[in-house]
Design a protein around this nucleic acid. Structure first.
Lengths: 251, 251
DNA sequence: AAAGCTGATTCCGTAATATGGAATTTGAAT
DNA sequence: ATTCAAATTCCATATTACGGAATCAGCTTT
């Protein structure tokens, strides 16, 4: 599937820029102009790319928004969760996020930005960050079986993003055990210097993990003393979403 | 580009379902199973599709959310507009939408749902509806040159979506002239029975149309008597967004 | 106005790739 | 164990994608 790989390379190259010409794409991807031309004109024909009629420059089209919104299950989750996230933001006066696990990464689905803080969020919807250095990621990991965790640790180097990132495997394992017991996770400036984050799990109708809700903000504002309170609010919120997803905790 | 067309057909078929098997995809698209298999496994490898490890069923992956969020310019517009849309929703107590023109269609980028109404919005982000029977669409059309309008009318049958849809070309032309003069457009149950909508234009730094803001709700609530007031609020809102986009109206 | 330049587009003989029927494997259900 | 449906692999063949070279289109410079 050489041509398909090329096509995807081209789409990704276009995504990285805001708009590109064919020549430039040729340099970015290493494919000759006729190849680029053939593929992009098909993509334009199918409305995946849009081409400025005068400059002939290419960019991603609305089609991807359309498809992005069709990423199912996730879509329902997002719609169900939204009002709860908004309430939680108002209650805590901090930015609130909704995220899912996507392979070895955390993918952010939605966020409600706090009006009360200036924090520039790094959690744009669709953004992907590693599991081991985020509150959301660690709460997912805390539910893994030992063999799953083992396989993950074997393939993933624990790179320090800040000086607080947990880079020691046994410390991470201990942290995950603690998280499992407490039922919430804290990211103590492990991903981004000065940013703290607290996360709790959302489960589906059978009690299986599907998403996590998190609160993130400047470390000064998410003070150690307040973390317990944040965690309780988060747990209440995620429990409410879980119930709305069909989970019955009367077991 | 036969294989690319097939690939896109497959992606679109997967998008329509929540999750499909290869056999089922083969029926949906008409391509034999080995062809589907070859293409989907490449897409899975590249993370465009995700495959349930046990059922082997395919669905769109987070990748499309990622790409959807990279649809540029639009993204900035969305971020800039969001707080204004929220204010407008609070002010009018009705759902507010942000939309752009996408070829011969209106594509909704964002919406702020009113807490005050039960209306199930048909304007999900990414949704596409015709230009001629929506407030947003008509406001775009009101800025077209006669030749553009003419070409559009020649290729587009004015199908009735409700008994109020404008299906007469000369009536539509007159309506657009009126809209241009008033600087706002009304969709009077032309797209959906019982739903009214008022729209105003957002322009970029050079005064060119880029998007439209609209208010939509049950016809009872968007009463004829209130439309003028709605239009004024909308125009103020869209002017504010336009200014934020760099437009200077001191001419 | 003409020449020069840059990038987009088209051409076309060739090599490589996608094709899909048939065979095989997987795994669930009986 | 046996059956069955679906997924996956195989492979000879035809088709398609390939990309260098030529051409075209829209600018800028002289």
């Amino acid at each position: 599937m050489k041509s398909l790989h090329k096509t995807l390379d081209i789409i990704e190259a276009v995504a990285k820029t805001n708009s590109v010409g064919i020549r430039q794409l040729s340099e970015l991807t290493g494919f000759p102009p006729p190849t680029i031309h053939r593929i992009t004109s098909t993509l334009v024909e199918r409305r995946y790319l849009k081409q400025d009629p005068i400059t002939r420059r290419l960019s991603l089209s609305i089609k991807f928004l359309e498809l992005g919104n069709m990423v199912q299950q996730r879509f329902n989750l997002k719609a169900i969760a939204r009002p709860y996230l908004e309430n939680l933001m108002v209650e805590l006066k901090e930015s609130v996020n909704l995220a899912v696990q996507d392979g070895d990464y955390v993918a952010y689905l939605d966020h409600v930005r706090s009006d009360y803080t200036m924090l520039q969020l790094f959690t744009k919807p669709g953004a992907r960050v590693p599991l081991y250095c985020t509150g959301v990621g660690k709460i997912f990991m805390s539910r893994w079986s030992p063999s799953e965790l083992d396989a993950y640790l074997r393939r993933t180097p624990l790179l320090p993003h800040t000086n607080r990132t947990i880079v020691d495997q046994s410390k991470l394992i201990a942290e995950l055990r603690k998280i499992k017991a407490l039922n919430y996770a804290v990211d103590n400036e492990e991903m981004e210097q000065g940013v703290r984050c607290v996360a709790a799990m959302v489960v589906d109708h059978r009690g299986l993990p599907v998403a996590a809700v998190s609160v993130s903000g400047m470390a000064k504002r998410i003070a150690q003393a307040r973390i317990k309170a944040f965690a309780e609010s988060l747990k209440a919120c995620s429990r409410a979403i879980s119930r709305k997803m069909g989970f019955r905790d009367t077991a």
